[in-house]
Amino acid sequence: MMRITVDGEMEQLNTKLTIDPKLWDVKAGRGIGRSAKVQELNSRLNDIQVILKDHYYDIQRRHGYVTVEQVRNAYMGITQREESLLKLYEQHLEDTKKLVGLSKADPTYKKYERMYRRVIEFMKKKYNITDIPLREIKLSFITDLEFFLRTEYKYSQNTTYKCMKFFKQVINKAIRAGLIYVDPFNGYKISTERVDRGFLTEDELEKMMSKNFASARLNQVRDIFIFACFTGLAYIDLAHLRVDNIQKMFDGRWWIVTHRQKTNTKVMVPL
């Protein structure tokens, strides 16, 4: 029998080799004597040991870590279809890009893309690997990724939450495709913090409205900002506003009729 041990985990396999117990050195794990049969046995055992070590170092080079199951499967010639994280992530980005202009906004896609780059950087710095099989992603990978975002990029609680939410979408895609069976996010918790964004008082708004800036450009910026305050439209919605969006409605008044880019919901604001 041969025993493979990696980080305290053990597997035993039958070598299909036999020897008289009287000719066996238990401590050395080799046959005793110089007979041709013993010499051949020891040579075969040496070959097995070399093969196992080769598998170990090959797995370590490719994945950055080794499990006893990986070594056993490699020795037995069991090859599993291993989908990698980045391969699936790239497919996810490609699918998301096709939805830009339909159900996704371009800024949202850029956030997905940025998180993809953060994951690549994280794996390189933390594990010194360029990719990882999906089935090897554990809870520790998730918590280490969160720690990386907080420490390397000083992300706030809410920014980190959004980034981890983007990453979870990729993991969910892998689960739905049957590429992984245990959700590595099980047991992981992160929540958003309530943020007081503040607001302008009526007096502050009046001061800004009556302020005459030194340049026409700043006056225009002021006008757009005030317009946003009264209409409730986001900057991106104002940037896309066109003459066609100003329409006379049933009450004979002019209204802004548009769609919010972020949610694609219809917005009607009386002027």
Rank of each mutant, 00 (worst) to 15 (best):
V38E: 04
T96E: 12
D223A: 09
R72F: 02
K262T: 08
R176P: 01
L139S: 11
F225N: 01
I224C: 02
A239C: 06
V170Y: 03
E90I: 08
G232E: 08
D203V: 11
N158I: 03
M209D: 03
K124A: 10
D106W: 09
S103Q: 10
C229E: 06
I51T: 13
I190W: 01
S210I: 09
C163D: 12
E11L: 03
T18G: 00
A177W: 06
I51M: 09
F230W: 12
R62V: 07
Y127L: 11
K165R: 14
V50W: 03
K97H: 11
Y161G: 01
W254I: 05
Q91S: 10
E121W: 05
K87D: 13
I190E: 03
L41A: 03
R30P: 02
F148V: 08
I19Q: 04
K189S: 13
T201H: 07
F227M: 07
T79M: 09
K262R: 09
W255C: 04
Q169C: 10
N42Q: 07
K173E: 14
K110F: 08
I226M: 04
E202K: 12
Q49R: 14
S156T: 15
I132V: 15
Q39K: 13
V38T: 11
F166Y: 15
K207R: 15
V267H: 04
F227Y: 12
L13F: 05
N14K: 09
K98M: 11
R30S: 05
R30D: 02
D58T: 13
Y161W: 13
E82S: 09
A177C: 00
H92L: 03
Y109W: 14
S35T: 15
I246V: 14
I32P: 01
N42T: 06
F185Y: 15
Y188S: 07
G29Y: 06
M2G: 07
V68W: 01
C229F: 08
A74I: 02
T201I: 10
V182D: 14
V38P: 02
K37T: 14
F141Y: 14
P21M: 05
V257S: 10
D203E: 15
D183K: 08
Q169E: 12
L238Q: 01
I48R: 04
V119Y: 10
G252D: 09
Q157Y: 07
K97M: 10
P133Y: 07
T151P: 00
G178N: 14
Q220W: 09
Y75V: 01
T5C: 10
K168N: 12
N73Q: 11
K138W: 01
D237P: 06
A239K: 15
A234S: 13
R176Y: 11
L134N: 04
L271P: 03
T143V: 11
L23D: 09
T263S: 12
D54W: 00
T15A: 03
F199M: 11
S215H: 08
I224Q: 02
T192Y: 01
Y155M: 15
A214W: 08
S84D: 08
Q80G: 00
